[in-house]
């Protein structure tokens, strides 16, 4: 009865279909945009551009407003993410591990903030900011972006903290660690992979956020997406938009590289107790 079951490699059809669908939906448009950004001349009905070149890249990168917008957006995203983490992570821990009056109401209020049309909320906030002289300032935009990150910077880490085995924390107390030390050495590392994804979402989300940045920041504070909109509105040249789009993917690429490193380091599996 010792027939070795040869591990037959079956074709993973479902995986292939998924990969194909993803390719069509994501990669093809990306390729088109990239092609556009390198097209000096591309007229209908040609399938490929008549002339490739870096003309529009040079023109775009020569503009100082593009560079200042890019660095502004990166700074803004970093600052917002850092502040959001500093506020939200301890709050999330409190939500996950403690009971206090009004806990549930407060917790769901973060969701409620996202359930209503955002633009109305933004206009109301803009009115308040006008009073506080925060309109068209860096910190005004930081504040408005902060609001946008609250939801997933609270909800995702709460789930992450809740899934940390309490016995692990108790075992650390037992070994002689105080509550703070337990948080740093046990709870945070255990929740890290999930929290990292929330931080990433927050960074990328802030980078791409347009409505709030435009409403509060304009005209002085111009982030990349805001700049792109004004480009598209003012100059109906597809290549400008294409070049800016490719530039806009920079944070996503950075994020992807980071994610890969986290995944590869195996801390994902460990963090999830795998």
């Amino acid at each position: 009865m010792a027939i070795a079951l040869a591990p037959k490699r079956r074709t993973d059809w479902i995986g292939l279909v998924f990969a194909l669908a993803l390719t069509i939906v994501i990669l093809v448009p990306m390729l088109v945009v990239i092609t556009w950004s390198f097209a000096n001349v591309w007229r209908f009905p040609s399938v490929l551009p008549q002339q490739f070149g870096l003309k529009f890249w040079q023109m775009t990168l020569a503009r100082s407003d593009v560079w200042s917008a890019l660095s502004l957006s990166l700074t803004l995203s970093a600052v917002v993410t850092a502040i959001s983490a500093a506020i939200c992570l301890p709050a999330a821990y409190a939500f996950a591990r403690m009971t206090f009056p009004g806990r549930d109401v407060l917790f769901f209020s973060f969701l409620a903030g996202q359930a209503f049309p955002k633009f109305g909320l933004l206009v109301a906030i803009a009115a308040i900011f006008l009073q506080l002289n925060l309109i068209a300032t860096f910190w005004g935009v930081v504040l408005i972006q902060l609001v946008g990150t609250l939801l997933f910077m609270i909800w995702i880490p709460v789930a992450a903290f809740q899934s940390v085995d309490r016995r692990m924390e108790e075992a650390a107390r037992d070994a002689g660690a105080g509550p703070l030390r337990v948080f740093w050495s046990i709870t945070l590392p255990q929740a890290a992979p999930t929290i990292f994804s929330a931080v990433l979402l927050s960074f990328v989300g802030t980078f791409y956020e347009t409505e709030g940045a435009w409403l509060i920041g304009a005209p002085q504070i111009r982030t990349m997406p805001v700049l792109m909109i004004s480009f598209i509105n003012n100059q109906p040249v597809i290549q400008y938009g294409a070049v800016l789009s490719v530039l806009l993917w920079i944070p996503s690429l950075i994020a992807l590289v980071f994610t890969r490193r986290v995944v590869n380091s195996g801390s994902f599996a460990r963090g999830f107790g795998g």
Binding site: R167, E170, A171, A172, I186, Q190, R270, G271, G273
Partner: peptide, 10 residues
């Protein structure tokens, strides 16, 4: 010593 061993997996 806990039933679920509670070792720190990281």
């Amino acid at each position: 010593v806990f039933q679920s061993h509670a070792l720190w997996t990281h």
